Amino acid sequence: MSKRDYYEVLGVDKGAGKDEIKKAYRKMAMKFHPDRNPDNAEAEAKFKEASEAAEVLLDENKKSRYDQFGHAGVDGQAGGFGGGFGGGFGGGDFGDLGDIFGEIFGGGRRGGGRRRSSARAGNDLQMALEVDFSEAAFGCEKTISINRLAECGTCHGSGGKDGSKPVDCDMCGGMGEVRRQQGFFTVSQTCPKCQGSGQKIDNPCGKCNGDGRSRKKTELSVKVPAGIDHGQRLKLSGEGDAGSKGGPAGDLYVVIDLKEHDLFERDGFDVHCTIPVSFSQAALGADIEVPTLDGKVSVKVPSGTQSGKKMRLKGKGIQRLGGYGQGDQIMHIHVETPQTLTKEQEELFMKLAEMDSDNSHPMSRGFFDKVKDLFQ
């Protein structure tokens, strides 16, 4: 198969300068590098093709011969992917092309490199905590029990039996990564033997099997702030699973599960409560005792109060998170209809019914006037 024109491969004009060629090659390498496209033969072929084109066009001597004679002028001198590129680019100025490695893999390590840390952070955990309505309103302190990974008490986190220490992995020499040459790249990959830790344990601890951590049930004290609501989370930093090989512990998230109250219903920082009153109390007005989160208070129900009327008690709701004020308590008045009457009560209600007038029931009068107009 005939080779494509090198300028066409990189997508540049024949008169392109080195900076433009470098930029074009960097773009191709970032897109088609085999480590970014594992098991993709087409991408690997395009990477090889771009690498070969860059090797020629960035070397002044090779470029001159290519411009004059085409592929025939450089055949056998372009090493291509994985072939060492002949004489090592013949003194061409490739500058920062090696930085592509860093862009692809998060930091190029040309030369000796450095040891990869084997420390790993612990997992974050989450659990539900049931709290009473009043506990959420006023705040409280609760004790929780959590089963989490903690430092192994037998090996004290080393993972080795009888105090033995990990040793450097014999495949990567403790670096946590292995390298292979791909053209003018030195490509690093996670060591398959130690999984990137750089170490191995020849004689693992019998309790944790070399992990350095084991399950442990722990009790913790949790401060529940006043005003917290259902579904909100508390974060306990560092109380999740322990990290491995000296890594930091994860966090514990405690999700609030708010129990329902027999009398109150929460709406943000306000609380709602249904207050039953009798016919006589609603008609004549009365001073009644109503429950609040702080205890009972006396409330005056005005005469002529209708069922469904709302009355607000300022500052008798939930404390706002952070302590900045409180919500209100909203009372929903419910006028009760007696279900059983004594003979005397029945006589009194019958007498009252005879005495009823339109003026005493303005809502009913207005309603029936509208019905009358509707069907005329």
Score class of each variant (00 low, 15 high):
residue 326 Q to P: 05
residue 47 F to W: 12
residue 348 L to A: 13
residue 279 F to Q: 14
residue 118 S to R: 03
residue 72 A to W: 14
residue 162 D to Y: 10
residue 65 R to A: 06
residue 51 S to R: 05
residue 17 G to A: 08
residue 349 F to A: 09
residue 82 G to V: 10
residue 55 E to T: 11
residue 39 D to G: 08
residue 210 G to C: 10
residue 208 C to H: 09
residue 359 N to A: 13
residue 198 G to N: 06
residue 281 Q to V: 11
residue 67 D to V: 07
residue 321 L to E: 04
residue 294 D to E: 13
residue 243 G to C: 11
residue 116 R to L: 09
residue 262 D to G: 08
residue 243 G to N: 02
residue 321 L to N: 02
residue 138 F to R: 02
residue 57 L to I: 07
residue 15 G to T: 11
residue 285 G to M: 04
residue 81 F to Y: 12
residue 235 K to V: 15
residue 203 N to T: 14
residue 65 R to Y: 02
residue 248 P to K: 13
residue 59 D to T: 07
residue 353 A to N: 07
residue 109 R to C: 12
residue 148 R to N: 00
residue 273 C to M: 04
residue 108 G to H: 08
residue 343 K to D: 13
residue 274 T to V: 01
residue 125 L to A: 04
residue 166 P to V: 00
residue 358 D to E: 15
residue 198 G to F: 05
residue 87 G to T: 03
residue 251 D to E: 10
residue 173 G to K: 01
residue 122 G to R: 03
residue 101 F to C: 14
residue 18 K to Q: 05
residue 179 R to V: 06
residue 198 G to A: 13
residue 370 K to N: 04
residue 57 L to R: 00
residue 289 E to M: 13
residue 115 R to N: 09
residue 3 K to P: 02
residue 288 I to R: 10
residue 180 R to A: 12
residue 20 E to T: 15
residue 239 E to V: 03
residue 22 K to T: 02
residue 261 H to T: 12
residue 262 D to K: 04
residue 270 D to C: 00
residue 282 A to W: 03
residue 345 Q to H: 01
residue 171 M to Y: 11
residue 81 F to T: 06
residue 208 C to M: 08
residue 153 G to S: 04
residue 90 G to A: 15
residue 134 S to G: 10
residue 267 D to C: 03
residue 227 G to A: 01
residue 94 F to Y: 12
residue 176 G to E: 06
residue 291 P to R: 03
residue 174 G to Y: 06
residue 270 D to H: 03
residue 352 L to S: 09
residue 152 C to F: 07
residue 200 K to T: 15
residue 67 D to A: 11
residue 200 K to E: 15
residue 96 D to W: 01
residue 102 G to T: 08
residue 316 K to M: 01
residue 212 G to Q: 04
residue 259 K to M: 04
residue 280 S to V: 14
residue 51 S to M: 05
residue 164 S to R: 06
residue 185 F to T: 01
residue 38 P to A: 14
residue 242 A to S: 14
residue 356 D to K: 13
residue 96 D to N: 11
residue 211 D to P: 04
residue 360 S to F: 03
residue 334 H to A: 15
residue 347 E to G: 14
residue 25 Y to E: 00
residue 171 M to D: 09
residue 182 Q to Y: 06
residue 88 G to S: 06
residue 324 Y to L: 11
residue 253 Y to C: 10
residue 96 D to E: 14
residue 287 D to I: 14
